[in-house]
Simulated assay, not measured.
Amino acid sequence: MDIDRYFARIGLSEMPARSSDGLGAVQMAHRQSIGFENLAIPLGQGIRIDSASVFEKLVTRGRGGYCFEQNRLYADALSAMGLVNRPLLARVLLGLGEGVVPPRTHTLLLVNLDGEAWIADAGFGGSYVPPLPLEDGAQVQTGDGAWHRLLRGGERGSLGGEWRLERAGPAGATDGRGAPHGDWQPQYVFDLDDVAQDDLEMSNHWTSTRPGTRFTTLCVASVVLEGGFASLSDRQFTIGRHGKSEVRQIETAAEYARLLGETFGIALSEEDAAKLPIFA
């Protein structure tokens, strides 16, 4: 981890304090600068989640990535800052019906802040998830107008998860999977079991290769904006700020590549954009 190059990538000139405010500052800068994307999958490039490969892709080459890449980079950066952390695995519930039990295809971080446990997540593509203390009922509001809360739920190891993250806010500040109402909606559930690197490798392999899933059938990207959120689902571009949303279709590979660079912080050449199945 070259922490100076990482900070340059996310637009920070110096290391923030090792505090909850500092954690929030790094995470917000990360999510506003390094877009979430799965484009390596439809391009047939594969996804590696070891530290060196992730740094080379997201920092050196200026690409984005999805949760297993984003939170590998984020974990390495937090470790370099002196913040002890470890990965957790979660089941994403955003946009799913009641009673559906999805596999554990999302990773987030458990961070030790002066002896207190916090969750931190720079890799959730559906909406912005701020750092939260691991406390039943913990709540925080974000700049997109949404509230977020943690609830202690089922028993450890249960399918429903030991903890449940929920969000209440405008659907326009999500990737389109948020319900149109602003009531509390589940984002994901997780427990605190230890997660080995091979557990992450297995989840990453399933997520990036399983036929018929979101990441193997769509080209997606998202990024956090000041007061809002932007997302791409195939050629549909949605941008929401301060409760108002705009939607338009991307017509050409050149426009797509330019939008990725200007809005999402993702460097993808026009030639590679043209190879995506949405333009083939």
Rank of each mutant, 00 (worst) to 15 (best):
D2F: 09
D2S: 08
I3S: 09
Y6G: 01
A8D: 10
A8C: 12
I10N: 07
R18N: 05
G22Q: 03
L23M: 04
A25I: 01
R31L: 13
Q32K: 15
I34N: 05
I34T: 00
G35C: 01
F36L: 03
A40N: 15
I41K: 07
L43R: 05
I49H: 07
V54G: 00
K57W: 03
T60P: 09
R61V: 09
R63A: 02
F68H: 14
F68M: 06
F68L: 06
E69S: 08
N71E: 04
N71H: 01
R72S: 04
A75L: 11
D76Q: 14
D76L: 10
A77G: 09
S79Q: 15
N85A: 07
R86L: 08
L89N: 01
A90E: 01
A90P: 05
V92K: 12
P103I: 08
R104M: 14
H106W: 12
T107G: 15
N112G: 08
D114R: 15
E116N: 15
E116H: 15
A117Y: 01
W118A: 03
I119K: 10
A120L: 11
D121C: 05
A122F: 09
F124D: 00
G126I: 06
P130D: 04
P130S: 08
P131L: 06
G137L: 13
G137R: 14
Q139P: 13
T142Y: 09
G145L: 00
G145C: 07
H148Y: 15
G160Y: 02
W163L: 04
W163Y: 10
L165Y: 12
L165M: 12
R167V: 13
G169I: 10
G169F: 06
P170E: 02
G172N: 06
G176A: 03
G176H: 04
G176Y: 05
G176N: 04
A179M: 13
D183P: 12
Q185Y: 10
Q185N: 12
P186Q: 15
V189T: 08
D191K: 07
A196C: 11
H205K: 12
T209W: 13
T213G: 06
R214E: 04
V220F: 09
V220S: 02
V223I: 08
E226A: 08
E226L: 09
E226K: 11
G227L: 02
S231W: 01
D234L: 00
R235N: 11
G240T: 01
G240D: 02
G243H: 02
S245P: 08
S245Q: 13
E246Q: 13
V247M: 11
I250Y: 00
E251K: 11
A254F: 04
E255D: 13
R258W: 03
L268W: 06
L268F: 05
I278F: 07
